[in-house]
Design a protein around this nucleic acid. Structure first.
Length: 557
RNA sequence: UGGGCCGUCGCCAAGCGGUAAGGCACCGGGUUUUGAUCCCGUCAUUCGUAGGUUCGAUCCCUACCGGCCCAGCCA
C-alpha cells in the first residue's frame, strides 16, 4: 500500500505495457533452477522477482526444474530447492514441473525440425565441432554432415535415441548459420547422447536435449508470458526466438534479461561454493557463513529480510555489487521489530553486591519486547551475586566510557543502579571479581540523591542462569571482491570468520525447548538457536548479526 | 581486434528534453533503563569523457574511454 510511489523496474514496465495493449492477459512466470546444487542469495533475487511479479499482477509462477543434464543433477537438490522456495514464502502453481516432463514433446519437435530440413545429425566429435565453429572473429565452417538427407537424418536420430551410438559419436544440430556473428547461432546442439539414467525419467532416454533447445519450448508449453533470466543469456535470445518461430509451439513467450545479484565480501558461484564445502573451509552447504539460502536460514536471517534485501537491490541491467551492509540492515530492521529480548553475558565477570543480603532473591520483571505488545514478560531472579560482561567494567576510565567503573554508578538493565567499590585480582593481576553495592530503591526509578547512572549494562544472576555456547560469525572473505580480476578467492579467506565462545550465561526465561527461536540479547545482537547442534542440555546460539555499534567506532578513534 | 550489453553520490537506484527522487553507508544533533531502536539534519551546480543539435540535454546525435558477456555435446 505504501508502495504507490515506488518506481517500476524495467520488467514491470514491460508487463504493464503488455497488459495495457492486450498483448497478454495473464502474467505467467517461472523460476527454473537446475537441480545441481544448493540455492544461494543470487537465486533468491530471481525467486523474489519471478514469484513477486506473479503476485503483484495476479498471475502465477511455476517452479520448473531445468533437468536436461542428468550427469550433474540429483534428487537431493530438488528437495532442498523446494524447501528453500517455500521458506522464502512462495507457492508455485500446481505441481512442481520438470523440463523432463516435456521430453516426449521435445523429441517430436526435433523430428519435426529434421523433417523441415532444419536439423541434422552431425558426426563431428567434440574437438572437430569446436574447430568448425570458428572463433569470435572468424566465421565457422559448415559441418560436412550438414547436407545429409532428411531420411538419413530421421534414421540416424532414431538410432541415436535407440542407443545404437556411443556417447559423443554424434549430436543433433540445428541448421542456422555457421558464419553468424553470434556464436550461439552457429548450428547449436539440440540433442546429445548421454547414457546415464535420469532422476525423473530413469532409463527411458539416452539422448537429452540441450538447455537452448528445451528452455523456450518448456516456456511455451507452460504458457509463460515473461521468461526472465540473467544477462549472460542475452545472446541466446535470438536462438530462443528461432525455436519458437520454427516450431508449432502453443504460445510465444519472450525472454527478458536482468543483471544477476552480486554482494561484496561473498561469492555466488555454485562451483566456488562447492569448493568451500569440499575443502572444508566451511561445515557444509548450510554453514551459517555461506550465502546459500540454507546457510542464511541457519544463521538466522528471516525470509522477510532476504526478500526485502532483494527488493532493495533492484532489478536492472547494470552489473553491480550490492553492499552486504544492505542485507545487514534488512535483518536488523526485521528482527528489531519481531524478536523478543533477553540478556546474555558472553564473557562473565562476577560482581558481588556487598550490601545485598546473602540469601535474598528478588524477582524482577522485564518486558518481552521494549515497544511491542504480544511478547511474554520476563521474570528475572536477582541476588547478591550477578554476572556482567568483562567489557562492561574498568577500574578507571575516561568520561566517554559509560559502564561500570570503580567509584562510579551504572544501571543494571531492568534492575538496580549499582556502584563499584573494588576489583579483586588473582596472582597474575587479572580481575576475577568486582565488589559493588546496590543503590536502594532504584528499580524502575532514579536515585533520590539525584546522582543518576550514565550507562546501562546487562547482567544475569550468578546463581540462576543457563550456560550456553555462542558462535560469532564474521565475513568469510577479507576482500570486498574475492573474485575480482580472476583472483583466487581461496587466498582471502578470513581466518576469524567463526569465533566460538563457551561458558556464556543467558537468563532463565528463554524458550530453550524451541528450535530456531530468535532473540535479541540486549546490547549484543540477534541470535538464533542452532538448528543442527543445539540441544536442551547443550545450548548453542548463532549470532545472526550484532547490533549497530557506535561505541566500537568511538572507542577506535 | 566479430557480436551483444552496460556506465547517474562510497554502494544500490529513480529520472527518459525543462534545469539531479529514494534506500544503504557515512557524518552531525535530539530522545532513550539496549552506546540499540526512534526522530531530525548534512551528504551529486552534477549525470564515463569530448564535441554537436536545442532557448534549454543526465535524457537526442557523433566519436572516444571504461566495464561485463559469448568460441561446453553446461545451465
Amino acid at each position: 500500500m505504501s508502495e504507490i510511489n515506488k518506481p517500476l523496474n524495467f520488467i514491470e514496465k514491460i508487463i504493464e505495457e503488455d497488459l495495457k495493449t492486450g498483448k497478454i492477459t495473464k502474467i505467467q512466470t517461472r523460476f527454473p533452477p537446475e537441480p545441481n546444487g544448493y540455492l544461494h542469495i543470487g537465486h533468491a533475487k530471481s525467486i523474489v522477482l519471478n514469484f513477486g511479479l506473479a503476485q503483484k499482477y495476479q498471475g502465477q509462477c511455476n517452479l520448473r526444474f531445468d533437468d536436461t543434464n542428468p550427469v550433474k543433477e540429483d534428487i537431493e537438490f530438488v528437495e532442498s530447492i523446494k524447501k528453500d522456495v517455500q521458506w522464502l514464502g512462495f507457492e508455485w502453481q500446481d505441481e512442481v514441473k520438470y523440463t523432463s516432463d516435456y521430453f516426449d514433446q521435445l523429441h517430436d519437435w526435433a523430428v519435426y525440425l529434421i523433417e523441415q530440413g532444419k536439423a541434422y545429425v552431425c558426426d563431428l566429435n567434440q574437438d572437430e565441432t569446436r574447430k568448425y565453429r570458428g572463433t569470435l572473429t572468424q566465421a565457422g565452417q559448415n559441418s560436412p554432415y550438414r547436407s545429409r538427407s532428411i531420411e538419413e537424418n530421421l534414421n540416424l536420430f532414431s538410432q541415436m535415441r535407440a542407443g545404437d551410438f556411443d556417447e559423443g559419436h554424434c549430436a543433433l544440430r540445428a541448421i542456422i548459420d555457421m558464419s553468424h556473428p553470434n556464436m550461439q547461432m552457429r548450428d547449436p546442439i539440440l540433442y546429445r547422447i548421454k547414457k546415464v539414467s535420469h532422476h525423473q525419467t530413469g532409463d527411458k532416454w539416452c539422448i537429452y536435449p540441450s538447455y537452448d533447445y528445451a528452455h523456450g519450448q518448456g516456456d511455451s508449453i507452460e504458457r509463460i508470458s515473461h521468461s526472465i533470466c540473467t544477462l549472460e543469456f542475452e545472446e541466446h535470445r535470438p536462438l530462443y526466438d528461432w525455436f519458437i518461430e520454427n516450431l508449432p509451439v502453443p504460445s510465444t513467450p519472450h525472454q527478458y534479461e536482468f543483471s544477476r545479484l552480486n554482494v561484496n565480501y561473498t561469492i555466488t558461484s555454485k562451483r566456488k561454493l562447492k569448493q568451500l564445502v569440499d575443502e572444508k573451509v566451511v561445515d557444509g552447504w548450510d554453514d551459517p557463513r555461506m550465502p546459500t539460502i540454507s546457510g542464511l536460514r541457519r544463521r538466522g536471517f528471516t525470509p522477510q529480510s532476504v526478500r526485502k534485501f532483494c527488493e532493495l537491490a533492484g532489478v536492472t541491467r547494470t552489473d553491480g555489487v550490492v553492499d552486504v551492509a544492505t542485507l545487514e540492515f534488512t535483518v536488523r530492521e526485521d528482527l528489531n521489530e519481531n524478536v523478543p529480548r533477553a540478556m546474555c553475558v558472553l564473557n562473565p565477570l562476577k560482581v558481588i553486591l556487598t550490601n545485598y543480603p546473602e540469601d535474598k532473591v528478588e524477582i524482577l520483571h522485564a518486558p518481552g519486547h521494549p515497544f511491542k505488545d504480544g511478547f511474554t514478560p520476563r521474570v528475572l531472579p536477582f541476588g547478591r551475586e550477578i554476572l556482567i560482561d568483562q567489557a562492561d567494567f574498568r577500574e578507571a576510565a575516561n568520561k566517554k566510557y559509560k559502564r561500570l567503573v570503580i567509584g562510579k554508578r551504572v544501571r543494571l538493565r531492568n534492575a538496580y543502579i549499582i556502584e563499584a567499590d573494588a576489583a579483586i585480582k588473582d596472582a597474575d593481576g587479572n580481575i576475577i571479581e568486582v565488589h559493588a553495592r546496590i543503590i536502594e530503591d532504584t528499580v524502575g526509578k532514579n536515585p533520590t540523591d539525584g546522582i543518576k547512572a550514565k550507562g546501562v549494562i546487562h547482567w544475569v544472576s550468578a546463581a540462576d542462569n543457563i550456560d550456553c555456547e555462542i558462535r560469532i560469525y564474521d565475513r568469510l572473505f577479507t576482500q570486498a571482491e574475492p573474485e575480482a580480476g580472476g583472483a583466487d578467492f581461496m587466498q582471502c579467506i578470513n581466518p576469524d570468520s567463526l569465533k566460538i565462545i563457551k561458558g556464556c550465561k543467558v537468563e532463565k526465561a528463554i524458550a530453550i525447548d524451541q528450535r530456531e527461536v530468535q532473540y535479541q540479547f540486549e546490547r549484543e545482537g540477534y541470535f538464533i538457536q542452532d538448528s543442527q547442534d543445539s540441544h536442551t542440555d547443550k545450548l548453542i546460539f548463532n549470532q545472526t548479526i550484532s547490533l549497530r555499534d557506535t561505541w566500537a567506532k568511538i572507542n577506535k578513534s
